[in-house]
Write a protein that binds this DNA or RNA. Sequence first.
DNA 1: CCGTGTGAAATTATTCACAGCC
DNA 2: GGCTGTGAATAATTTCACACGG
Lengths: 228, 228
Amino acid sequence: MSQRQIPEASVARLPLYLRALIDRAEAGVESMSSGELAAAAGVNSAKIRKDLSYLGSYGTRGVGYDVEYLIAQISRELGLTQDWSTVLVGAGNLGQALANYGGFADRGFRIAAILDADPAKVGMTVAGVEVFHQDQAERIIREEDVAIAILAVPGDAAQEVADRLVEAGVTSILNFAPAVIQVPEGVSLRKVDLSIELQILAYYEQRRLVSDDLANGAVRRHLDGLPD
Amino acid sequence: MSQRQIPEASVARLPLYLRALIDRAEAGVESMSSGELAAAAGVNSAKIRKDLSYLGSYGTRGVGYDVEYLIAQISRELGLTQDWSTVLVGAGNLGQALANYGGFADRGFRIAAILDADPAKVGMTVAGVEVFHQDQAERIIREEDVAIAILAVPGDAAQEVADRLVEAGVTSILNFAPAVIQVPEGVSLRKVDLSIELQILAYYEQRRLVSDDLANGAVRRHLDGLPD
DNA sequence: CCGTGTGAAATTATTCACAGCC
DNA sequence: GGCTGTGAATAATTTCACACGG
């Protein structure tokens, strides 16, 4: 199988495999089995094989996968053989941290400009990138051929900013703002919500506490010789 | 239905509903239908009703859900009626941005301490929280009864730091480090990976470009009177 | 032999559609 | 009449298990 429409869940894992592969390649590893890759990526091996089968038959039976070759195939599939221009919108705390985060540039995502609504921030340089006023969005997106925007604005500004970005030609948005935003059909949207992740953890944390209590209760009953 | 084991996918959406509800409550809204809540949270209404049904029957047929009451129920379910102490590990760019991010404290997640391996950072105060040396982890986690750790260290340090945190008693980790980490059974782990999200977007962005090309090709063939 | 690639089975998640109640 | 709550239907995802090829 070599032709298309990779399941979304599978696409979302490919970058993980890619990172594991690059990591092992740098350590000099030339070949990996699905089991080794699974361990490095934190998933199980059946999933690895199934996911990779959507890309094609790039493994060798009885042997495994050639690391460099697989890196090339996944990179191509993910569209990482080209560089992408992005704009980062929002030069506050989070925006600045994102600008300083090296992981974007490493993977071919160039921040062409940082945009902010606050005139006081305009002209600053963050991680070597100039901050422009949001009014310049249309021009910069056009001139720099920006397809992807990273949104790090306050929640209540997010929808409005997203609308303008889409209007200006952006077709993918990575939203860090703590707000639900709507985008038109045909525009991709992913969100990263810092506090939501913590809240999910709190749920499981609480369950752990509750079941500990129950277990303690059970132990106590047992020690007391009472029926369960 | 009121008794337990809410599907994971559903748990992951509850914080989203909660935020939408709080937002509307602040705007003075007292009641919402599943359709209204769906619009505010960016999902469909069947999902809302199904998800909420796992918590219990808290709506009123023909009317909708009482906003305040539902906020209370979801908060209780998620374990947000209590405050949680956390430690933030890593006082670099990202760590500082996270410390400055108000969204944690707002939702009852108190950062008890920031930990860093770099002695030069020890003693600093970030967002009103003191930075301690990582050697203090065990003491702080014990004294402050910390169950949740936020990991914002370099990728190559992540596993080692996670091991120490678990050893010290942490039972939930939110990992921002760009690395796969393993935790023992019984410890919760969620990860937020900034560059992986961009890579996922790149995949769909590329497909858009490719299909545009194909469409242009089709148009060209059509205009040229050639067969498809 | 060993590990991939993949149908088939099992599980999980989403959506439908409507009875039931306010 | 309108909206919830929920079984039943559908879709997506994960896992199993093994034939196949190097």
